[in-house]
Nucleic acid binder design. Sequence first.
DNA 1: TTGAAAGCGCTACCAG
DNA 2: CTGGTAGCGCTTTCAA
Lengths: 321, 321
Amino acid sequence: MARLAGVSRATVSYVLNKATAVRISEPTRRRVHAAAKELGYVPHAAARSLRAGHSRVVLMPAPGFPAGPLYHRFLGDLQLALGRLDYTVVQYGSMGVDGDEAARAWAELRPVAVLVPGPGLGPQGVTVLKRSGARAVVTLGPRPVEGAHALLMDFEAVGHRAGSHLAERGRRRVGVVVPEEEGLAAFSAPRLAGVRRALHGTGAAVTELPLAYDEESAARLAARWPGLGLDAVFAYNDEYAMLLMRALQDAGVRIPADTAVIGADDLMLGRLLRPRLSTVHIDLPSGRELAELVDRAVRSPGTAPGTHEVLGARVVPRDSS
Amino acid sequence: MARLAGVSRATVSYVLNKATAVRISEPTRRRVHAAAKELGYVPHAAARSLRAGHSRVVLMPAPGFPAGPLYHRFLGDLQLALGRLDYTVVQYGSMGVDGDEAARAWAELRPVAVLVPGPGLGPQGVTVLKRSGARAVVTLGPRPVEGAHALLMDFEAVGHRAGSHLAERGRRRVGVVVPEEEGLAAFSAPRLAGVRRALHGTGAAVTELPLAYDEESAARLAARWPGLGLDAVFAYNDEYAMLLMRALQDAGVRIPADTAVIGADDLMLGRLLRPRLSTVHIDLPSGRELAELVDRAVRSPGTAPGTHEVLGARVVPRDSS
DNA sequence: TTGAAAGCGCTACCAG
DNA sequence: CTGGTAGCGCTTTCAA
């Protein structure tokens, strides 16, 4: 490349990186740019970061659980915000392998920061990543992990809000939907626990309701409904809530008269049902905030990792409860 | 690393890559493995692919348009399948930049293959990628691109199926929802065209209906409904269909008596509405198939890029039409 | 069976 | 102002 522009490789590097320390003559500059354009020259990221000793890659393993629209919007924001700070966000598909084992694969890319959604990463994995040069490891999940910054998504609070709401409405026999789908346990368990805590000491009873995300499973559950004797149900999220609510209505259960239903996530679609679905609205941290946290952590890696409570949860009462 | 195991770097390389060409004594082997574990040694992917001259990275730019659950399932499959073939799938967040410009950024990573969802990549971009060493460039979109393998997602056919279905049902004044959201035009335009083609010569009229994905916009459209005089509507996809159908029902329009509604994508949620939503089911290619296509293309890069028709579309009539 | 050394593409220092 | 050059971590050929 340099040869064809008639200059040395160093000069090329200077020109393309707009190095300020050295001044390159305008004609040379032009020749370099022209040659680059003509050859379709593109710098080699691997070589660059090898030389530099660090990269600007922020690695985000793709979540191993079925993620909803909420998560995808958040992800988009985050990518945009990190992009503005000149990081390159890379989503790495490492499905099927568990965290600490996967961490090794992630470390091969020598990312400057790693954002791990969900549980699954242990202290071991954090160590591997840090040793490989990651200047920030951030977990987004229900529990903090030794050595990593934690964005604590307190799903227990989501359940707690839902439980309190139902109790306030005078409901005493509360069902809690627990998805049967793989990988959702880490999210459903705290929600269930939250409901239990909210109802503890009120004399209300909590019943666990396993449910797969298909009509048949919902119909089966609805058929058992009279025997269950429940006057309320917290349905994990809006999608399960919509599924269950429909099945209940088809089985002749009146909502909210016989049974109150509340979901979570505040999806637009829940507003379209009749009755309109009550829900727990969840405020994820904004992509911008997370991006800034990452940036701070990268710039001053000495700082002790902090734990931030980042989930706002509030009930949006509508007509189904 | 090598020093601490008491052997040379070459030996380390042999052991960790299980090189078959040379035989390493068992004790040495063990020493290397032990040292690697103790130091938490992880090979440096950049250095490796720099030396090798190529990588096993399959790059997939994150789509610049709001992607639905359909796409995310497909993506998961694909990652799994490519992972099995020992490729590393990397999703690159390059939102906001247009294809040919972004291609340059993608090329910096020297991926062995690039899968580009949606339109936006032109022949220029393909050239850049190929010159940078990509052995396969595959587009997943409405039109083929010069020089790239194309998986042709024929959304025109989706519209055509919907249009034919409505015509068969005797509908003559058909509305077609066109989302106002950014980036969806490339998908909605062919669907609209498909409806037009299906209805051409039947004497039926087609009306374009811009709609944003929120309740207010839907309510405004529903309020104009009587004046529009439509007896059917194809609502771009199930989500817009659900939104519009609810607004129409609230405005007193009977479905399907006054107006038939059909969506697309066959989301489970559509089945939960009353009346149950008719839809056009779309068969995406399986992740496994795409993975194999990529693998073939990588292994024999001489082959002329092919164009494959990969979208099965069929009407699933339910109660809303 | 192991070690020494070259070189992948790039940047940063230092000499011209 | 520009060019030569060392060296990032790794693999691979050649020699010992």
